[in-house]
Design a protein around this nucleic acid. Structure first.
Lengths: 339, 339
DNA sequence: GCACCCGGGGCAAGGGCTTTCCTAGATCGG
DNA sequence: CCGATCTAGGAAAGCCCTTGCCCCGGGTGC
């Protein structure tokens, strides 16, 4: 690998001059030398060693984000927002997939710290796990103590800048809509109970139902993996145990799609016999049949905001941005069947 | 940020010893000192500076991949395969999104080179663009000349290790299936014509049709963006210009989903009146209505193989692995309507 | 014509870590 | 009991780049 001094030697200048030409330093260099250096760079196909560069200027360039899984459309959208802002500001974004493993999340915090990233963004849901929370906060605190910036997306037990989708309000919207449609026996396809996302959405839903005089007994809530198959399996279990349900609330769109598949397999017409709702409004939500009634979260916007928070110098007080959820009515929700 | 010498000082040892303890060097260190060092590490929350570490040992750890867009399910799946193998071998994977911009692809090659990654994997389709091809090959050659490993996924004009999905054969499978079903007037929703993926799939399709005595005139092929909206728009245009088509072949699943949406909007029953086929067999393909008849490509496997090729020492001759495509019959393709 | 200034270039000091080589003390054999 | 052999730990030389500082020579002002 050609080094800077190779270039300098070939151009007949000092490494200092070569460096200045290559980095467009403010220090003037004669056109003659500049040309010689550039020629040498081209001939040697020289590319500066990013690590050495990093070490020499102590200027932190990259930013890291820890997501559960980029191939999950939810995170794909969020990441898109993060990317956009990062690129606009000339920052490299390192994406780390925890694959929903808290330990891996911890490891990635260390790794990013080791990479000396300028900021770390936690994009997954928080966990209801005091021990994990303590550990991650400890690591983040150490990072922040040395000037690192942290922003989180979603509710985490971390005091600092945060972007919060209004999951509670979203749950409420769904609940209210279902009541309006006359549903009384409502089943829920929930994600893992340890995620704050799950509990917040559930809390909002329950609040709305209670307001309208309905209840949501625990046995009508099925906790499963936050993915398609989790949704499908939970739907089957729910249907068998609670044949009276007229509406199934999935706590994200992916699970809702699984529910739709399970219902189709049993030839249950949606929404005529059973209503299904999702959450997140992923792009695919409008393309399944029936198109999903869901709650839109401004995913890209969330990513963009989080990156802005992370890159703008921190205010004295933690900044928390609450992003509104919005009901999207499509075809998968209908009036409760009269029986 | 605590440094190694901070740790060493606190533990009352030399940086050399501290380093040895932390990295588990083979050189023996007394338990007494080891314990002191580890305690200091914990107290200071020390994390080694990855850049300095890199510089000191000239051992290349990370691997880079350039994809078009991770949020595209096609690449999400491929990336999952790459990740798995990379993690198994203790490698960090850097994911770069070119967003289908060839210039950005070039930039990322430089960037990864600067990061001194052990290998670069090009996961997007190749381009039919001699100038671009020349440039990228030049940069890759320079990289390989210094010991860098390169693997490509898909057909690129790059001689070296490659994993090739058998796009041609896949196109053939679709063509044969449609002929079997009696379709004669077939329209195509193609991706950008500059992509080798597009032309290869198209070539296979055309070959099959020709063999069965059908033709595929250019005016029944619509080139559009390889995404949902591209598919929807092209479908509308195709329907208007060629009302006689009984089958629409989308060259990837995303476009097929767009086609389904456009047909639904026009209340055209699928597959009764028009058959639609996709390509790739993304996870969502089975969950749209009607479920997509498509061609399965072993996407995860492709990623895994590519990573293996990249990490295993190169053979003398370039290794090319051709991965078979497989027809997946679902509900979106049916017999041609009798008229 | 002299002191000064300033533009253009190079020297060298890091930046944080690994690793080779060396040293000093302990151990062992004769 | 002394030299040979180990052993654990430390000193220091890089890895590649940036940048503050210094230096040299020619132009400026009075």
């Amino acid at each position: 690998m050609a080094t800077l001094s190779d270039v300098a030697r070939r151009a007949g200048v000092s490494p200092a001059t070569a460096s200045r030409v290559i980095n467009g330093s403010s220090k003037p260099v004669t056109d003659e030398l500049r040309a010689r250096v550039l020629r040498a760079v081209a001939e040697l196909q020289y590319v500066p060693n990013a690590h050495a560069q990093f070490l020499a200027r102590s200027h932190r360039g990259a930013v890291g984000v820890i997501v559960h899984d980029v191939s999950d459309p939810y995170f794909a959208e969020v990441t898109r927002g993060l990317q956009r802002v990062a690129s606009d500001r000339g920052r490299l974004l390192m994406i780390c997939n925890s694959y929903r493993d808290p330990d891996r999340e911890l490891e990635y915090v260390e790794l990013l710290r080791g990479q000396q990233v300028a900021a770390i963004i936690l994009a997954g849901s928080g966990y209801h796990d005091p021990e994990f929370t303590r550990l991650v906060n400890e690591k983040l605190a150490a990072y922040e103590a040395t000037g690192g910036r942290v922003a989180v997306i979603g509710r985490h037990e971390h005091s600092g800048d945060a972007v919060m989708p209004d999951n509670r309000a979203g749950g409420r919207l769904i609940g209210t809509e279902l009541c309006r449609l006359g549903h009384r026996v409502i089943g829920v396809l929930a994600g893992p109970a340890v995620l704050t996302t799950t509990t917040d959405r559930l809390a909002g839903l329950r609040a709305a139902l209670t307001e309208h005089g309905r209840d949501l007994p625990e046995h009508r809530i099925r906790y499963a993996a936050f993915d398609r198959d989790g949704g499908a399996e939970a739907t089957v279990a729910l249907l068998d145990a609670e044949p009276a349900v007229t509406a199934i609330v999935a706590l994200n769109d992916t699970m809702a799609i699984g529910a739709l598949a399970a219902l189709r397999a049993r030839s249950v017409p949606v929404p005529r016999q059973v209503t299904v709702t999702g959450f997140d409004d992923m792009p695919i939500a409008r393309d399944v049949t029936p198109a999903l009634t869901t709650v839109r979260l401004p995913l890209v916007e969330m990513g963009a905001r989080a990156m802005s928070l992370a890159l703008d110098p921190g205010a004295a007080a933690p900044r928390v941005e609450l992003l509104a959820a919005e009901l999207v009515r499509r075809d998968s929700a209908g009036p409760a069947p009269v029986r």
